[in-house]
Nucleic acid binder design. Structure first.
Lengths: 358, 358
DNA sequence: TGCCGGAGGAGGAACATTTCTGCATGGTGA
DNA sequence: TCACCATGCAGAAATGTTCCTCCTCCGGCA
């Protein structure tokens, strides 16, 4: 009545399509969604009318009715005061990109949300589930989400027994141990570590693995920590590490920019890489392939992680649930380049504890 | 009747809060949204009951009723076959990060969407507006969005008179001209260009500006093009450029990784930077501060652009519209480092057209 | 002729809000 | 004392879908 067609404001609704096609609303819905029992003639007719009217179903109404929004939250716990470390390191950027692609391939879109508990935003968007990158122990946002029955999958094994739906992570201990063995095999006698002051799982696990390794081989730990979100602090810490009296002859840097920082510091102290100093850092960046010399990097495979996280989450959303949380470990990848090539084949097994300089 | 409280499935609704608080649905809505005329006593009582019940308003229902979702789309037109160049270059990553922050600060969340016209995803999410990064001329997605009455703001001046709500861009011509002048002032006699084969606005404007400049100073253009999305191609192109018989004595690289690629190529040919070769590239990466030597970069200020784009878009969404499209030009920033420092002060004004190799 | 069954489609409830309208109630000025 | 108004709140429409239920044909068969 009086609104059968050409409503004055707003876009065409399913009602208008029904009127224009001379069928009922139900029939339009069924025809467009491939449901119900309709002859192909009706189906195509309805589709054509809908097209002609430029009809787009209202996502809000559909979500309200079905309870599914097709939206997945993506959250990065912030290290510093910046709201988003999101792209601080290439790792996050790559991971987010892979997650976005994977979600899209299954018909979902990603919404980027702050880890801070700003209620207004979180409750203003209807999410079907959430991906959390590196949640802190007992993260309030995560517990809140789970309490409301939303599936949550985390990148990084959650601490504090967070009740997540699943998680994906590397085996950081194994990665660090393997990498240190690689350096030792290349002739390193005293391996230093450039690490972070933050308490996230990655930093913690990597550091303890380093300390373990040191204990095992009987080397005194040599490391410097800095707030990982501050690039300048990284350069300073790299410098401090090489300025120490017990200067290491090999260094592993936990964060992406450490490679260039360490290289610059080495240059300042006249240390040749890899002759005087072996270098490895954890990075997803390709710049290390063309530095002078090229630097060995440890890749955490963010693409595989991002994809895996999203698959697990969507499986959970769509009820393809398994018993208990899904846990998946992605192998890391050590890309060996010049900076960690053995400097002379026969120094491999020499004992540690030589004095500092060279 | 029979459902006043403790509904068996789903979460508490506004109805349940109303029943529990002994007031009407209207009163709950008003109390929670700060509307209507209610004494503070009622307001706080309702709020408390809602808290106790863990009530979260349904975003879908609110969106349906109000027509506003608080969601903004973010789209990057894809260069290659990868669905997202999203983080291919630090520029995009930084821009996206800034946009996300700015949107959040005003109560909106960003949804990352593919530029391809995959209908299902675009129409499955209720957007209040969209940010488009570097739209192609006559982009079908953009025209479709505009046709449906959605505000669209683009990063990059849209070609083909796309009917966008507004755009933000750098003055790429001015940036390139200024940069080439800088190189010439530093003693460059033959400036080469590393550019892309893609037809996006940035590449096109920068390249034509280069050609203009060459014509103006009477230098033969020396450039190599490659598909910007392929990092290996970049290294190869850099090598080709320096292998030419008419080898340039200064190079500007349009894309982020060009700096390291060119540096590596220069090393292969035994060219010292900046003595034999001046180098500038367009990059947002901080690695160029610590390369050997540090490389001069042109920053496009992605953070300012991301912020500006979102502000304009949200202003449009909220009806703070101005007449006609909003256009905003963000100045670029040339960060001068060693790689483009004048090699000898007095060659500044020497005429062009000297034969090739210095 | 009467009944049955299936194909095709219509009606309408439900989803959870917001918001317009309107109804009491009690105080106040004339 | 009465009209009037501000205050505090409730009722119900409207938003655009989906989907469950049901109705109406119409042909076939006994």
């Amino acid at each position: 009545m009086s609104r059968s067609t050409g409503r004055r404001l707003g876009r065409a609704g399913i009602r208008d399509v029904a009127a224009a096609a001379g069928v009922s609303i139900t029939t339009v819905s069924d025809a467009l969604n491939g449901k119900g029992r309709l002859p192909d003639a009706t189906r195509s007719h309805v589709r054509e009318v809908a097209d002609r009217l430029g009809y787009r179903p209202s996502a809000a109404a559909r979500t309200l009715r079905t309870g599914k929004s097709g939206l997945i939250g993506l959250t990065v716990t912030t290290y510093g005061d910046e709201p988003f470390t999101f792209t601080e390191f290439p790792y996050f950027a790559e991971m987010a990109r892979a997650a976005t692609s994977a979600a899209l391939a299954r018909g979902y879109a990603l919404v980027i949300l702050p880890a801070t508990s700003r209620h207004d935003v979180w409750s203003n968007v209807a999410l079907d589930g959430t991906v959390v990158i590196d949640p802190a122990d007992g993260d309030p946002v995560v517990t809140e989400l789970v309490r409301h029955g939303l599936p949550v999958v985390s990148d990084g094994r959650p601490g504090g027994s967070l009740p997540v739906t699943g998680w994906v992570d590397n085996d950081h201990e194994a990665a660090v141990l393997g990498l240190l063995d690689h350096l030792a095999a290349a002739g390193a006698r005293r391996i230093g570590l450039l690490t972070g002051t933050t308490t996230d799982t990655y930093t913690r696990l990597s550091t303890t693995a380093y300390l373990q390794w040191c204990e095992r081989v009987g080397q005194d730990p040599v490391y410097e920590s800095y707030p990982a979100h501050d690039p300048c602090a990284g350069a300073v810490a790299a410098d401090r590490l090489l300025a120490r009296p017990d200067r290491p002859d090999a260094v592993y840097g936990l964060f992406d920019p450490n490679g260039t920082d360490l290289l610059a510091a080495a240059r300042r102290y006249g240390l040749r890489v890899p002759d005087d100093l072996l270098l490895v850092c954890c990075s997803e960046s390709t710049v290390y392939a063309t530095t002078e010399p090229p630097i060995t990097t440890l890749s955490l495979k963010p693409r595989r992680i991002g994809t895996a996280v999203v698959q697990i989450l969507i499986d959970a959303i769509e009820g393809l649930a398994t018993e208990g949380p899904v846990e998946q470990v992605i192998p890391t990848d050590l890309i060996v380049r010049t900076s960690s090539q053995r400097r002379s084949p026969r120094t491999t097994v020499s004992p540690p504890r030589g004095p500092a300089g060279d």
